[in-house]
């Protein structure tokens, strides 16, 4: 299980930059590590979510050649928050998962933008929101919900008495 978790976190971080482009639709790619971190945090709590977010984000930063620590911090915060709130949320329904992931992705994007602003990131907020953050958030919402449903189905199949 630990191996799987490690592969999920570390592989997700690196895979995003490499295979994420294959999932690109109309020049919008999903943030796979964020989805993985959210799913893991919901199941394993804030501590694991925070660590997973940090590891995945750091690898993502390194893999994409950006500033080291930006995504590591935002994803760590998201992982922590979701891990902490997970016990109080009912997240088994797609009607919750899709908007939830969209909202989280938006928050992560805004946090990343805010953090980069501290370090004099030059991109305009309007364009970034319109063409990067919102489309990616929507994509994350639907992809994450599909992933949750697929996992639920796999678990149901596995737990079915043979």
């Amino acid at each position: 299980m630990r191996t799987f978790l490690a592969i999920a976190v570390l592989g997700g971080g690196v895979a995003h930059a490499t295979v994420g482009s294959a999932l690109r639709i109309a020049d919008v790619a999903p943030d796979i590590p964020l989805i993985v971190v959210v799913l893991l945090a919901l199941r394993r709590g804030p501590e694991f979510g925070c660590g997973a977010g940090f590891a995945a984000g750091l690898l993502q930063d390194a893999a994409t050649g950006g500033l080291l620590g930006v995504q590591a911090l935002t994803k760590a915060v998201i992982g922590f928050a979701i891990g902490a709130l997970g016990e109080r949320l009912t997240v088994s329904q797609p009607l919750v998962q899709v908007p939830g992931l969209v909202l989280l992705s938006l928050l992560e994007g805004l946090a990343r933008f805010g953090l980069l602003q501290l370090f004099h990131f030059p991109a305009p907020f309007g364009g970034l929101l319109m063409y990067v953050i919102v489309p990616q958030a929507l994509y994350n919402g639907f992809l994450g919900a599909a992933l949750v449903l697929a996992l639920a189905w796999a678990e149901a199949v596995r737990s079915r008495p043979s």
Binding site: G45, P46, E47, C50, G51, F54, L67, L68, G69, V70, A72, L73, A76, V77, F80, G83, A84, L115, L118, F119, H120
Partner: peptide, 24 residues
């Protein structure tokens, strides 16, 4: 448990900010 998690978050945030500052 909650304190440990918060401490971890604090450490991670500190590390990240330090990394960012050093990079700049």
């Amino acid at each position: 448990m909650r304190i440990r998690a918060l401490a971890l978050l604090g450490i991670i945030a500190g590390v990240c900010l330090l990394l960012l500052t050093l990079q700049m």
